[in-house]
C-alpha cells in the first residue's frame, strides 16, 4: 500500500487559494447545535452558500456543550461549504489534538483554527476540569511539525501527513497592548498562516495594531482577516462593551445605535458592519474579513452583499 508522505496529494482549499491569489476573503461562523441535529448545520450551510469562502465551526464555544466541531465541519462540507474547524485546548490533550487533526484532514477538512479556548467556568459545566495540556501556540507548533517534519509531538513518524491550512486568533484589543504584535509574531513563528481577529468596533485601535503588524512585516507572513460582528440590539452592544473581557466598543457606536428607533437597530447594525468592512478593505495588510454573526446567520448574506463582495471567486487556480 502506498502511503501519502507528501502534502501535494490533495488540492488546496478555497480559502487558502483565494488568500494566496491576493483576493479579499470572506469567512463566517456557524455554531453547531446543542443536540444530535445534523439538519441544523445543513440549514446554516444553505444560508451561507455563495456568500462566504469558508465558514468557521466553533468548538464548544463559551464552554457550552454542543455537537463536536469535527462532525459539524464534516456536515458543512457535505453541504458545499468549506469549513474552518476550530480546535480548543480546553477539552483535549496533545494526544487527542493530534488525533483529531488527522481525522479532520482525512474527512476532507482543509482549515484548522487553533485556540486556547474559553475557560470552563464560563459555560454550562463549570465543575469540569479544563485540560490545557498545551496552549494555542504549542498546538499550532505541534500540528505544523506533523505537517512539515512528519513527526508527532512525541517524536514518532506521522505515516501520511495532513496538510491543513493553519489559523489562529488574535485580539488587538486585549491587554497588555504592547505585546499584542509580538504575540502575533509568535503565532506566525509557530506555524499560523492566517489570523482571524476579535470583532473590530474600535477601528482606530485596530489600525494602530495593524501599523505595528506592518512594521514587523507580519502581514507578509500571515493573512489577516478582521473580525466583524453585526450588532443586533443596544442591549447586545452594551453587554459587549461592559461584560466581555478584551472587547473594545467605542461610545460613539453606542450613541449611534441609541439614536435610531428600536425596530431599526438591526438594520443599523448591518449598516455599521458593512461600513466597517469597507474601512477594513482600505487598510494595507488586511486580507479579508471574518463575519461573526452570533446565531444570526441570516445577516451574513446582507452584509456581504452590502459590502459589494459577491459573487465569491472560486479559489481554484
Amino acid at each position: 500500500m502506498e502511503i501519502n508522505q507528501g502534502t501535494e496529494v490533495r488540492k488546496k482549499g478555497a480559502l487558502q487559494g483565494i488568500l494566496e491569489q491576493g483576493r479579499f476573503a470572506v469567512t463566517a461562523e456557524a455554531g453547531p447545535p446543542r443536540g444530535a441535529r445534523p439538519e441544523v448545520m445543513a440549514h446554516k450551510a444553505s444560508i451561507l452558500k455563495g456568500f462566504v469562502d469558508a465558514c468557521n465551526v466553533t468548538d464548544n464555544q463559551t464552554s457550552v456543550v454542543r455537537m463536536c466541531s469535527l462532525a459539524a465541519s464534516s456536515i458543512l462540507l457535505d453541504h458545499g461549504i468549506e469549513p474552518v474547524m476550530q480546535m480548543v485546548c480546553r477539552d483535549r490533550n496533545r494526544i487527542a489534538a493530534q488525533s483529531d487533526a488527522l481525522g479532520a484532514y482525512s474527512l476532507g477538512i482543509n482549515n484548522l483554527l487553533c485556540l486556547s479556548g474559553d475557560h470552563q467556568s464560563f459555560g454550562d459545566h463549570p465543575m469540569a476540569k479544563g485540560v490545557f495540556d498545551i496552549d494555542s501556540i504549542q498546538l499550532l507548533a505541534m500540528i505544523d511539525r506533523m505537517q512539515t517534519e512528519g513527526r508527532f509531538s512525541g517524536g514518532d513518524e506521522v505515516q501520511g501527513r495532513p496538510a491543513l491550512f493553519l489559523g489562529a486568533a488574535a485580539n488587538p484589543f486585549a491587554d497588555p497592548f504592547r505585546i499584542r504584535v509580538p504575540r502575533l509574531a509568535k503565532k506566525a513563528a509557530a506555524g499560523a498562516r492566517f489570523i482571524q481577529t476579535q470583532c473590530v468596533f474600535d477601528v482606530p485601535r485596530f489600525e494602530e495594531w495593524m501599523q505595528g503588524v506592518r512594521e514587523r512585516g507580519l502581514h507578509e507572513k500571515l493573512f489577516i482577516l478582521a473580525g466583524i460582528t453585526p450588532i443586533k440590539s443596544l442591549k447586545m452592544a452594551r453587554y459587549m462593551a461592559s461584560k466581555v473581557p478584551g472587547m473594545s466598543v467605542p461610545q460613539e457606536l453606542l450613541d449611534r445605535l441609541k439614536g435610531v428607533e428600536k425596530k431599526k437597530r438591526k438594520t443599523e447594525g448591518i449598516k455599521i458592519a458593512v461600513e466597517t468592512i469597507q474601512k477594513m478593505m482600505e487598510i494595507p495588510g488586511v486580507s479579508g474579513v471574518h463575519i461573526m454573526a452570533i446565531e444570526w446567520e441570516e445577516a451574513v448574506p446582507k452584509i456581504v452583499e452590502g459590502a459589494g463582495l459577491v459573487p465569491r471567486p472560486s479559489g481554484r487556480a
Binding site: 485546548c89 480546553r90 486556547s116 479556548g117 474559553d118 475557560h119 467556568s121 479544563g130 490545557f132 496552549d135 494555542s136 501556540i137 504549542q138 486568533a169 488574535a170 485580539n171 486585549a174 491587554d175 497588555p176 505585546i179 504575540r183 509568535k186 476579535q198 473581557p245 478584551g246
Partner: peptide
C-alpha cells in the same frame, strides 16, 4: 487560570 505557557489569552483586561 488556563496554565498557559505562552499567554496571555485574549481575555486579559486591565
Amino acid at each position: 487560570s488556563k496554565g498557559l505557557l505562552n499567554g496571555p489569552c485574549g481575555g486579559s483586561s486591565n
